[in-house]
Design a protein around this nucleic acid. Structure first.
Lengths: 234, 234
DNA sequence: TCGCGCCAGCTTCCATGCAAGTTTGCATGG
DNA sequence: CCATGCAAACTTGCATGGAAGCTGGCGCGA
C-alpha cells in the first residue's frame, strides 16, 4: 500500500517541471515589479537568467499571457502588461459580482461549515482591526487579503476561486500602491463585520448585499485615487 | 493608407501561427465532441492529424488546459475534461453573478448606446419568439445564445467577456444536450423582454435583477434535468 | 537637409533529437 | 489460475538548430 519511492500525491498533480518554475519565477518577478510594466524582455534573456532553455520560458509566457499579465508579441518579445484605470474598473466589476455571489454561497452553507467560515472570517476582521489600531498598514493589508480570500474559498466554487486569483494577480500592483493611501480602515472593518454577521445568521441575501456594497464602496474610493494620482498606466 | 501586403490589423494581433491553428482545431474538435470527454490523445497523434510537429500542439494544449477544457497529464497525454453536475453548478454561479452585473452595465450606458443595445437585444428576443413559435429549437438556441452574448458584449467589460467565453466553452456540450429538453421557451422570452425593458428604461437595478432571475431559473430548471438524466460525467 | 530603401542583427516559430518516466504485455514462478 | 517482475514501446520534457520576420541604422539620392 505504502509507496517507498518519492511517488506522487493522491490524484493531483505534483511534478517539479521547469515550465512551472519559469511560470512561478516570472509571475513573482512581475508581481514584485522586478519586471516593470512596459518592460520588454526577450525569452532568451529570461531563459539565461533562470538557467534553462528557451522552451520552458516560452511555454510559461503562454500561460502568463492567458492570465493577462503579459503579452507575447509575435516576433518582438514578451511585454509586461500595464494597467490603466479603465482596467481597474473592469476588474472591480468582476470582483463586485463574484464576491457578492461567493458571500451568498458561504451564507448558504450547512450549519457546521457556515459557523466555521464565519469564525475564520471574524478572525481575519479582528486582525484587521488590530492592525488598524496599531497603524500597521502592511498587516492590515495582509489581513484584508486573507478575509477576501477566505470568503471566496469558503464558497467552494473552484472556478470562482480561479477567476478571483487571476484578477487579483492582475491588480496586485494597484493594490500595493493604494494600500498606502488608505484612510477608510474603520469603514472596511465595519463592513466586514456586517458580512460575517449575515453569514453567521445564514442570511444569504444580506451577505450578498453587504459584500457587494463593501466592494462597491472600495471601488468608488480607490478609482478616483488612482486617476488623480496620474496613473495613466501602472 | 492602404496596405498592399497581407499586413496586420490596427494594433491587434493577426498572425496565422500554427499554434493558433492547433488551438482552434482542437477546440472545435472538443466542442463538437469529435474528441469525446474522457478521451485520451497523444500530442504526437494530434500533430500528425493536423500535419504539424508536436511543438505547436503542445503549446495549444497548454492554452486549452488554461481554459479548463483539457488536462495535460505529465507523461501520459492529453485528457479531454468531463463535466460533472457539480461543475455545471459552479459554472451557473459564475454566469448568474456576471450576467447580472453585465446587464447593470448595459442599463447604465449613455443614452445612444443603450438604445442601440436594447434594440439589438430586442431583435434577438424576437428571433427567439419566432423560432419558438415555429418549434425550431435549433434556431431558438442560436438566438438565445446571441442574446446572452450581446448582453455581455454590450457591457464592454473585456474581462467579463473573456470569462463568459471560457465558461460557455466549458458548458457547451451540456447546453447542446439540454436544448432538446427545453419546455420553457416562453418563460425565457418573457424574461428576456423584462431585461430589455429595464435596459431601455435605464433601470440598472432592475436589469441586474431580471438578468439574475432569468439565469437562476434556468439553472434550477436545467440542473435537475442533467442530474436525472444520469449525467455522471458529460 | 530630408526621405527612402536596404542590410545586419535580433527575436520568435517550429521541427527534431535525446533523455527520462510511465504503461502495457509477456514470461515466469508460486 | 493468479501474482509478480521485467523489458520494450510509447509518451512527454526539454534543448537546440534552422528559417522567417521585425526593427533600426546606415548610406544613397533628391
Amino acid at each position: 500500500m505504502a509507496r517507498s519511492k518519492p511517488a506522487r500525491s493522491e490524484d493531483g498533480e505534483k511534478r517539479p517541471s521547469l515550465v512551472d518554475d519559469a511560470y512561478a519565477a516570472m509571475k513573482r518577478a512581475i508581481l514584485s515589479s522586478d519586471f516593470a510594466p512596459g518592460y520588454q524582455a526577450s525569452e532568451q534573456e529570461i531563459a539565461l537568467r533562470l538557467g534553462m532553455s528557451r522552451t520552458p520560458v516560452h511555454e510559461a509566457a503562454i500561460r502568463l499571457q492567458e492570465d493577462g499579465l503579459v503579452r507575447v508579441l509575435p516576433r518582438r518579445g514578451i511585454l509586461i502588461c500595464a494597467l490603466a484605470p479603465e482596467d481597474m474598473r473592469e476588474i472591480y466589476d468582476v470582483i463586485v459580482a463574484l464576491e457578492g455571489q461567493a458571500a451568498e454561497l458561504v451564507a448558504g452553507l450547512p450549519e457546521a461549515d457556515r459557523i466555521e467560515a464565519a469564525a475564520d472570517l471574524a478572525a481575519c476582521t479582528d486582525a484587521m482591526a488590530d492592525a488598524g489600531a496599531r497603524g500597521d498598514l502592511q498587516a492590515w493589508g495582509t489581513a484584508d487579503e486573507s478575509f477576501h480570500r477566505a470568503l471566496i474559498e469558503r464558497g467552494g466554487n473552484r472556478r470562482m476561486i480561479r477567476i478571483m486569483q487571476t484578477v487579483n494577480d492582475q491588480s496586485h500592483r494597484a493594490r500595493m500602491l493604494t494600500l498606502r493611501l488608505r484612510q477608510e480602515l474603520d469603514a472596511s472593518v465595519a463592513e466586514h463585520r456586517r458580512i460575517v454577521e449575515a453569514v453567521r445568521a445564514s442570511d444569504a441575501a444580506g451577505a450578498h448585499r453587504h459584500a457587494r456594497q463593501h466592494r462597491l464602496r472600495a471601488r468608488d474610493t480607490l478609482l478616483p485615487l488612482l486617476e488623480d494620482f496620474g496613473l495613466r498606466h501602472l
